[in-house]
């Protein structure tokens, strides 16, 4: 099978978030960047497992500038066969999805794997947009996938339960936790990744309909009010009269 995995780069979860240029841009100084965990741990690994089971190729694709190459190489080290970088700043979900779809549209991928969301902007928009541009069925937030012949059976959590779905290839899937087990790149994988192809292609023209114009930090939490553990009536009273939540 010919498989495509879309990977994004995000700040490390524990990174201190700050902004620059009058709070109009993210400040990358001193921030460590990683591959978005949903893309790395689940989407990429499940695609590799599928390739190992049925044969084929796994390509990783990123829309971003050359500073993303280290993260893309990590995808190769974990086991992807080759990589593509569409050379442009990922300015919006609309932009990214359009670029991915334009690249993928005539390549005949059997499945396109993505993460359920990026952990920086938490958008959860790109996967369903790509599915629509390519007119493919889409299963979001998959936690389990079995493949038999041309059909995949998938499980996912929905509000208040677990849903089991089935769909025929080709399709788009977004990965949630448990779709696969994280793989650590081996020394050999890292060595080999240096020789695997990373093709850089230009972006296609697109009128971007949405952009971030300003960032803000949430107002500082007021000081925590400590309650005597022997006086739970007081806590209930505060929740009712002060916080007004019960």
């Amino acid at each position: 099978m010919k498989l495509l995995v879309c990977i994004s780069q995000t700040p490390d979860t524990t990174a201190n978030i700050s902004f620059k240029d009058n709070d109009t841009a993210f400040n990358p100084d001193g921030v460590q960047f990683i591959m978005n965990p949903y893309d790395e741990w689940y989407a990429l690994v499940r695609a590799l497992e599928l390739k190992e089971a049925v044969g084929g190729t796994v390509t990783v694709l990123n829309v971003g500038p050359s500073t993303n190459d280290a993260v893309i190489r990590k995808g190769l080290a974990i086991g992807a066969d080759d990589a593509v970088r569409i050379d442009a700043e990922a300015v919006s979900a609309d932009f990214v999805a359009f670029q991915i779809a334009e690249y993928a549209k005539d390549k005949g991928y059997d499945a396109i794997f993505m993460g359920k969301e990026t952990i920086d902007f938490n958008g959860a928009i790109v996967p369903s947009m790509v599915a629509e541009y390519l007119d493919l069925p889409f299963v979001s937030q998959a936690q389990h996938m079995d493949v038999e012949g041309n059909t995949a059976t998938l499980k996912r959590d929905i509000e208040g339960g677990v849903e089991v779905l089935s769909v025929d290839f080709p399709f788009v899937i977004s990965a949630a936790k448990d779709l696969a087990e994280q793989r650590i790149p081996s020394m050999k994988g890292i060595m080999m990744s240096r020789r695997k192809p990373l093709n850089v292609v230009p972006a296609v023209d697109f009128v971007n309909p949405v952009e971030v114009v300003h960032f803000a930090k949430p107002p500082a939490k007021s000081e925590v009010k400590m309650i005597d553990p022997d006086n739970m009536d007081e806590l209930v009273n505060l929740l009712h009269n002060e916080a007004k939540v019960i």
Binding site: P11, T13, I17, F19, I119, D120, F121, N122, V210, E211, V212, V213, H214, F215, A216, K217, P218
Partner: peptide
């Protein structure tokens, strides 16, 4: 955005 650590105006 950023897992609740900030807001963004789009």
């Amino acid at each position: 955005v950023f897992s609740g650590k900030a807001f963004a105006d789009y």
